[in-house]
Write a protein that binds this DNA or RNA. Structure first.
Lengths: 140, 140
DNA sequence: AATTAATTTGCCACATTGTTGCAAAGTTGA
DNA sequence: TCAACTTTGCAACAATGTGGCAAATTAATT
């Protein structure tokens, strides 16, 4: 298990440290996207607040995770798929934020449709965020 | 001119104050969406920082403006169209963030397409954010 | 027009979130 | 194993957001 995690970091050109393994593990364990606060809560005092910031920054830069725009002001992060490379994200799937449980899911199967933009505009990235109630919360 | 502004506030069930007229004027003058920091910079020391927060909150609640999710952590606000009502936003248009000038525009004509979501999921709101280069920056 | 009731504003203090510098600890590669 | 380099934790600081309260302003009423 740990070998696999290390391999993931190396593939992204990140040196292997306890901090990074811990945070990577969190991402793999959670189906939902994580905020800085989520991670801080999970690790308790095990990791410094600043270190978490810097780790997320490093993961972002190396293309291991991507961030998800939200209307509230907390940035969410989620693991990228294999098709994502450093500085070039191809996360063309939609994200779903559940109002009830607050969790955000990557809808890997929902491909973002291409749309017409005004002439002279060049589109480099597209984000599609849905808001509502997830399947789990609906049952209750 | 001032009469029209007052009318806009009244229509949204907001009492007319200098602060609100000032901020509303800013929104009407700017084609791009504004952040709290943008407004603070514009008005200088004319308005208190806290007052701006509360004014934006009031505008949001009454449906005069809507906020735009962004991947960075600063919330953007833009005027709503007439179809928006208090507590019920119908801003089903896409937003475009220009990488070069940093400005965010409402693409009023670009309607967000409906997409398929997993069964048991209920969609209440849809946000579509495009990222790239706007027409103005492309010319340069 | 003047008075009253209700709302809004500015100031203060405080909480939360994010950033930078630097020395100590850890990682990588030879 | 050693040296070069990177990462981490701590401290200090900057920026952003929130709540209380008295003074000022607006809206409503007579």
């Amino acid at each position: 298990m740990n070998e696999e995690l290390q391999e993931i970091l190396r593939k992204s050109h990140l040196s292997v440290t306890d901090t990074r393994l811990t945070i990577l593990k969190l991402f793999l364990k959670n189906k939902a996207a994580l905020s800085h606060a989520d991670i801080e809560k999970s690790v308790g005092k095990e990791l410094d607040r600043v270190t978490i910031y810097r780790t997320l920054q490093a993961f972002l830069e190396k293309g291991l995770i991507h961030n998800i725009p939200t209307a509230s002001n907390n940035i969410l992060y989620a693991l990228c798929k294999d098709e994502c490379y450093e500085h070039q994200h191809l996360d063309n799937h939609a994200h779903f934020v559940c109002e009830d449980c607050g969790q955000t899911f990557c809808l890997e199967d929902v491909v973002i449709p291409r749309i017409q933009v005004p002439k002279n505009f060049t589109v480099k990235q597209r984000d599609f965020i849905l808001n509502g109630q997830c399947g789990n919360c609906k049952k209750k």
